[in-house]
């Protein structure tokens, strides 16, 4: 009887932990394979006289591309205003979405925040 109850109700241990272990094992497998195949190379030592075209990590490419579009006095819009506003908007999501029609509004803002970096990253890749 006792065993039957245990079978009906799934508990954290061992049911869930078993799945978690499998998932973690899977993660590690992927990581180790990638790490062994694509080893990061050492860059050149710093040389201030050699001109260099920097490339940020992939998750900053959109920002690197974004600043191109704000010339002159508006540079600050691309470097600070847009990134900061994106983060704040993302944080405000629960307060933008108050149910009903505002829910749609929140979705639109969220997917815009998603599409903007993606498009900018593509734009970077295309122009290099």
């Amino acid at each position: 009887m006792k065993e039957r109850i245990e079978e009906i109700e799934k508990t954290f241990y061992p049911h869930f932990v078993a799945e978690v272990v499998v998932v973690i094992f899977f993660c590690l497998q992927i990581l180790i394979v990638i790490s062994m195949l694509f080893v990061p190379e050492m860059g050149r030592p710093i040389d201030l006289s050699r001109q260099y075209q920097p490339r940020p990590e992939w998750y900053f490419l959109w920002l690197f591309e974004l600043v191109k579009f704000f010339p002159g006095w508006s540079v600050v819009v691309g470097t600070v205003v847009v990134p900061l506003a994106s983060v704040l908007l993302l944080m405000m999501m629960p307060f933008i979405d108050r149910g009903g029609s505002s829910s749609k509004m929140a979705s639109i803002i969220f997917y815009l925040l998603l599409v903007m970096p993606v498009l900018l990253t593509i734009s970077y890749i295309l122009s290099h």
Binding site: P54, K68, F69, P71, G72, W73, V75, G78
Partner: peptide, 18 residues
């Protein structure tokens, strides 16, 4: 970096430099 261009006197021709 962001394709800013200046003439020989250093004046901005095009691109984002302020």
């Amino acid at each position: 970096c962001h394709a800013g261009r200046y003439n020989s006197a250093g004046v901005v021709l095009s691109g984002p430099p302020p």
